[in-house]
Every structure is written in structure tokens, then in C-alpha cells.
Amino acid sequence: MRTIKASGGVKKVGPGQGRTKQVGDVRLTWKATGEDTGYATSFYEMDLPPGKGIPLHSHPYAEVFYVVAGHTDFARIDEQGREEWVRCGPGDTLVVPMNALHAFHNRSGKPSRFVSSSVYYHEVLFETYAPTVDADDPLPPARAPTEEEAARYLRVLNEAMTVHVYFPQADAGSGLEVLRAIEARNAATAG
């Protein structure tokens, strides 16, 4: 009988470990990166505070979400072009097919946590446009963005096409207009 020699490459990433990225006013932590998986997939965890979320977007690869705690609302666009929301709680999985417009927001009054898996190319967006931060640092205080910050946000939405992520808000007249729309979408709902 032949045996295969064990590899030293097996890696454990514990709670609070991984590379954390600041994405607007939320954070995600990479638990498995393309480098870890032969550039086949990447996997992140996100703690989503109440009233926070990621705007409507699409990309040419699927993404899978698994809710661990709390409730996360996912927006999708139906066949008639209408936005509809799907509330997911602990143990629910949401599968977003390639090129499907989607968004996610915590529209409840309590924190939520989910994990997401996609291809390595998804990771490239965050590595390109989101700064790495210390996971233990406090989140930035809630405040209205400056015009300069809003303009930068709009530039990033436009530049995201270079890494094959489409944000329909990129055509907005101003970054403040985009951020106000996101804030309205994040409005708390029952639950």
C-alpha cells in the first residue's frame, strides 16, 4: 500500500484571524484567499452592523452567502426589473448566479454575520480598492461623508469595471446621490 506524504500547507484560520478590508463603512475578513486555494476560490466573513450594506452590483461569477447569525436582507432584480428583498437568517444560504444584480443590507436592528464564497477574481476587487485595516480597530464614527469622500466613492464604482464588477449607480450625477440612495436602502425594517 502506498501513502501520500502529508503536506504542511494545511492552514487553520481562527476567529478574528485573516486579512480585514475596510469597504466603505463595513469590514470583511478573508478566511481563505486565492493564494490559499490555487486561485480557484476565496472566502470571507462579514459582520454587518444594523443599517449597513453593500450597494446593488453584479459580476461575471457566482457568489454564495451563508448567514451565521442575525438577519441579512438580500436584494435581487426579478424578470420584470423590479427590486425584491429576500430576508435570510441563521442557516440560510443565498446563491447569486453569475451576472445577477444583487445587494445585501442589514435592515434589522441587530448585528448580522455571514460568510461568502466566490472565485478568486472577486477578491481582486477588494484588494484593489479597499484598504487593509486591523480588525480590532474601532469602526469609523458614523457621520455624513464629505463631498471629496463621496466623489472618491463614485470614482471607485466607475473604476470597478476594470475588475469586472458593475455598479449601476456609477452613472449617478454625484457620489452624494449614490450614498443617499444606499442609506435609504439600508433603512431598518421590522425584525
Results as ranks from 00 to 15, higher is better:
residue 77 I to C: 11
residue 75 A to Y: 04
residue 58 S to K: 00
residue 66 Y to G: 06
residue 59 H to K: 06
residue 79 E to W: 06
residue 64 V to T: 12
residue 85 W to C: 11
residue 88 C to I: 09
residue 71 H to F: 15
residue 53 G to W: 03
residue 81 G to V: 07
residue 57 H to M: 09
residue 76 R to N: 07
residue 53 G to C: 09
residue 56 L to M: 14
residue 53 G to Y: 03
residue 76 R to G: 12
residue 56 L to C: 12
residue 62 A to T: 01
residue 77 I to T: 15
residue 68 V to Y: 11
residue 67 V to C: 02
residue 69 A to Y: 10
residue 64 V to M: 12
residue 80 Q to P: 05
residue 50 P to H: 06
residue 69 A to M: 05
residue 84 E to Q: 12
residue 58 S to L: 07
residue 61 Y to I: 01
residue 64 V to P: 00
residue 56 L to W: 00
residue 49 P to L: 09
residue 68 V to W: 02
residue 66 Y to C: 11
residue 80 Q to W: 05
residue 87 R to W: 05
residue 57 H to D: 12
residue 82 R to W: 13
residue 71 H to C: 14
residue 72 T to N: 07
residue 51 G to K: 01
residue 69 A to G: 10
residue 88 C to Q: 02
residue 82 R to N: 14
residue 67 V to L: 04
residue 73 D to K: 03
residue 77 I to L: 10
residue 58 S to I: 04
residue 62 A to F: 03
residue 76 R to Q: 11
residue 62 A to L: 02
residue 53 G to H: 00
residue 49 P to G: 13
residue 61 Y to C: 06
residue 74 F to D: 02
residue 74 F to R: 01
residue 67 V to P: 00
residue 59 H to G: 05
residue 88 C to F: 10
residue 71 H to K: 14
residue 59 H to R: 03
residue 68 V to P: 02
residue 84 E to K: 11
residue 65 F to Q: 05
residue 61 Y to Q: 12
residue 54 I to E: 09
residue 61 Y to W: 15
residue 85 W to E: 06
